[in-house]
Design a protein around this nucleic acid. Structure first.
Lengths: 207, 207
DNA sequence: CCACTTCTGAAGCGATCACTTCAGAACAGG
DNA sequence: CCTGTTCTGAAGTGATCGCTTCAGAAGTGG
């Protein structure tokens, strides 16, 4: 959606590259901890140009967040939501989540990091994190529904179980961001996977 | 442990009162978001006096944290650890936790808030939050052990289950701090309690 | 009362924050 | 080349940060 300019000096940097670099900073260092000077240095773009292009630090975050949500949706949420599988889709989701939030360092999930940062003030960011929470919880519920319909798990307490799983998504994130060791994270992850497996009913032999 | 002074002008404020007020601010607003000017205004104590008494903002936090840990230990961890009960002690723990982190507003647990704030840097605070994590996880494990020994639950996957529970402690906190609605928190809490109940084995009729 | 010590209040320190200003650079169309 | 437009670089805005300075207030023991 980058339109070629018609008149005036052409922009000296690529908008998408800048957004990706800004996303990386906000994600790894946090929104508040990333100063406009940090952005200037890492992106190699003068503050003046950044403000000219994006308006404010918050709008830059919003634009970076658009890109982030598209990616995490493709990598984690859509596979969970669109899978034909039940419990296995959820187990895969948590495996993917594990990789996603620990990929290089203690970066966690940007949306959940933001949720933890702003302390629940009523900002545009808060509204987006709320929407994201609903989306993830709903995808988990959908997968549990599939598992129940196929007889993989008992068709009871689906609401409670999806809430439990969603709570674990949040818990894993804060454990990662809070500096828990790899072993600690692994332990929690094992606890989740074990619990998901424990929901599985004994299956009648197929075939 | 407040020693009466021997010479010089007596302090014009009460150390314990000041620590309690500072604790309240750090807890509700966050450590970083609480400025020394906020402390001055809320405590009614000049910055100069605060620095004279405590040394630095970080040391003031450390002193407030001492008080906080004593209280949360008495209110939540000791009852869990010292109870003769198994699952019921854990259920009570989560009920108490719910009250503790939502008591007035979205305050969460100070230790977990700090864990989320400093991003895992290796500070004195990080070391204390690590110690606290170990303590809570161990108390949960102890309670599960009691439940297993009394035949209340199967004596399997105790490590995984305690990790799961601990992850939920973290998840509930971030949900509260992140501005989740009362209904959302209640949903997650119900998910946890339901899961704990689901671990209970059918009991032989006693009597 | 005096010398000594400790604590207080106001003012101010340098650093850093998000953001702005403005002269001039770099292009287009005429 | 000239005019009009957009973008860039360096400098600087006021606000706020954690923390310090220092004169003087408020006590003590002699």
């Amino acid at each position: 959606m980058t339109i070629a300019h018609a008149r005036g000096r052409p922009r000296g940097f690529d908008l998408d590259d800048a957004l990706d670099a800004a996303l990386e900073l906000f994600w790894r260092e946090g929104f508040r901890a990333t100063s406009t000077r940090d952005l200037e240095a890492t992106l190699g773009v003068n503050q003046s140009s950044l403000y000219h292009a994006f308006g404010s630090k918050a709008e830059l975050l919003a634009a970076a967040l658009d890109r982030y949500e598209r990616r995490i949706d493709a990598a984690l949420v859509e596979p969970l939501e669109g899978s034909p599988l039940g419990l296995e889709a959820i187990e895969d989701f948590f495996s993917n989540l594990h990789r996603w939030i620990t990929h290089d360092g203690k970066r966690g999930c940007l949306v959940i990091n933001l949720m933890a940062e702003d302390g629940g003030a009523d900002t545009a960011i808060t509204r987006r994190t709320r929407r994201y929470r609903r989306r993830v919880r709903s995808a988990l519920h959908t997968a549990l529904d599939r598992a129940a319909r196929s007889g993989e798990i008992a068709p009871t307490a689906l609401d409670e179980r999806s809430e439990l799983l969603f709570g674990m998504v949040l818990g894993l994130n804060i454990a990662v961001r809070g500096g828990a060791s790899r072993a600690e994270i692994g332990g929690i992850m094992t606890g989740v996977q074990q619990q998901i497996g424990a929901w599985r009913l004994p299956q009648p032999a197929t075939e």
